[in-house]
Design a protein around this nucleic acid. Structure first.
Lengths: 107, 107
DNA sequence: CCTATATTTAACTAATAAGTTAATTAATGG
DNA sequence: CCATTAATTAACTTATTAGTTAAATATAGG
């Protein structure tokens, strides 16, 4: 039902655990165990979250011994940002109009 | 499980039907029937999508006779945008580094 | 080869999401 | 008041999601 890439990304982002993982990855790459550390959650659950992020194109993975570290995919959020652009204009526009209105009332 | 406002918004956005509705609303407010028109979907289904958008704070509603038109909530996406900010820096940073690297290789 | 560590896969459960049809509520206008 | 139009609620089905535990796979090192 929801197979387009943008939906996949937004769906992946709509989970606080996964967003926390991304926040961690902003500091640099991390292994599964490192990512799991702050959460009271089984490793398989973590593994699944990682898979969701990866399939959404938000992270990439590498190999190092028996570890498979994760890293932020730099261009991963671009698609989301592109989508937001159009709306950013709308709301900036409206907020500034509201602002103008409030100014005019005040005077 | 997923009750925070940001998750609610991203979850609401992670559906192409709902995003299409928002796109329509960029042109101006619309009634439920107007929003439903492009979709092969029952009205109750549309009604539910609208509720999701509203509860996420992405749209507001008014009343006019027996209609309850929807309008974009201008500040609705701001929270998402705020969240993205931090990542925008990361990826812009990395992409520009990549760019610089490619430049240096070329020379 | 054996063991320890890192991670994933399998199999399952419970909750949530997205849709349906039928029935209900709300407001207008004759 | 009655019929019409607009939208929602109720009740239900099906698929997906997020988690669990137990078992399996992969790699390194002695």
């Amino acid at each position: 039902m929801r197979e387009d890439r943008l939906s996949l990304k937004l769906q992946a982002l709509a989970d606080p655990t996964r967003r926390a993982m991304l926040a961690r990855l902003r500091l640099g790459e991390a292994t599964v165990n490192e990512l799991a550390q702050p959460f009271e959650m089984s490793l398989p659950a973590i593994s699944k979250h990682i898979k969701v992020l990866q399939q959404a194109g938000l992270i990439t993975r590498s190999r190092h011994a028996q570890q498979r570290p994760c890293q932020l995919s730099p261009e991963g959020l671009q698609e989301v940002d592109e989508w937001m652009k159009a709306y950013r204009d709308v709301w900036v526009d409206r907020l500034s109009r509201l602002d103008a209105y409030l100014q005019s009332v005040k005077e």
